[in-house]
Simulated scan of single mutants.
Amino acid sequence: MAVREAFTAEEWQAVGAAPFLVGLYLVGAAPMEPMVIVREMLAAEKAVTLEAHQPDALPIVKEIDADLVAEVLTRDLGVINGAADEQARVLGELARAVALVEAQAPAMDSAFRAWLFRVAEHVARTTAERAPAGAGSRHIGGEVAAALRTLAQMLGVPQR
């Protein structure tokens, strides 16, 4: 049985959105130019693809990747402006996705949470690495570091 069969179509959309919600949360953490936002969302998608093609990849990640390729899942989660209410909305949607996995696929719950945090770290690193020379240091800024701490706490994973 495929993992996604444990979910309704609407629930699967919520679960499949989780890595992009992580990216959106980081986007909202610090003011960014539109191209940086696009790069962060592409980094989230690349993190899905990278994990899905690992020999020991989680089945749920493989299925999310396959459904992204087949355009069954959406990448369009709206615009975020960094306002506190928008950040709270994104965290709420992410919490819902995590709760769905915990309820419907409990054997994958902790690994799914850890993977989502790896997605967040990948997005944060990608943005820091692509910072233009002279635009400040090429490390994860304070707002993004704080967002990573929030995500680690929400997901119940240790922050490295």
Rank of each mutant, 00 (worst) to 15 (best):
L26W: 10
D76I: 15
K62F: 09
E71R: 14
E40M: 15
A111Y: 06
R118W: 03
L24V: 04
D67N: 12
V69G: 05
E86F: 10
A111T: 11
L24H: 06
A103N: 08
A57P: 01
A107W: 09
D76E: 11
R96V: 12
V69A: 15
L42C: 06
L42V: 15
L24P: 01
E63M: 04
D109R: 10
E121R: 05
L91Q: 10
A88T: 12
G16E: 02
R118V: 09
D67I: 08
I80Q: 04
L77K: 02
I37G: 04
D67S: 08
A88C: 12
K62Y: 03
A84N: 08
R96I: 13
G78N: 02
Q54K: 09
V79C: 03
K46R: 14
L42I: 06
F117T: 05
V98A: 03
A30Q: 15
P19A: 04
V90K: 00
H53Y: 14
D109G: 11
R96P: 00
H53D: 12
V48H: 00
L58G: 10
D56C: 03
A124E: 00
I64Y: 01
S110I: 13
T49R: 06
T74R: 11
L77M: 14
E63R: 03
M32H: 14
G92Y: 14
L50T: 09
K46W: 14
R118C: 06
E71I: 08
V101D: 07
A97S: 11
R39Q: 07
A88V: 13
E33N: 12
L24W: 03
D85K: 07
D109A: 15
L21P: 02
V61K: 03
P34L: 04
L116P: 01
E93P: 00
A17Y: 03
R113G: 07
D109C: 07
V48E: 00
V79Q: 11
A44C: 12
V98Y: 00
P31K: 12
A66T: 13
V61A: 07
M35P: 02
P55M: 13
L77A: 05
A105W: 06
R113E: 05
V48S: 04
P34Q: 06
A52C: 05
M108T: 11
E33Y: 08
G16D: 07
V79D: 11
A44F: 10
R89N: 07
L42S: 09
E51T: 02
R89Q: 14
E71S: 12
E86N: 03
P106S: 13
L68F: 15
A114G: 10
G82N: 05
A83K: 13
G28L: 12
L94T: 05
I80S: 10
P34F: 10
L73D: 02
E40F: 10
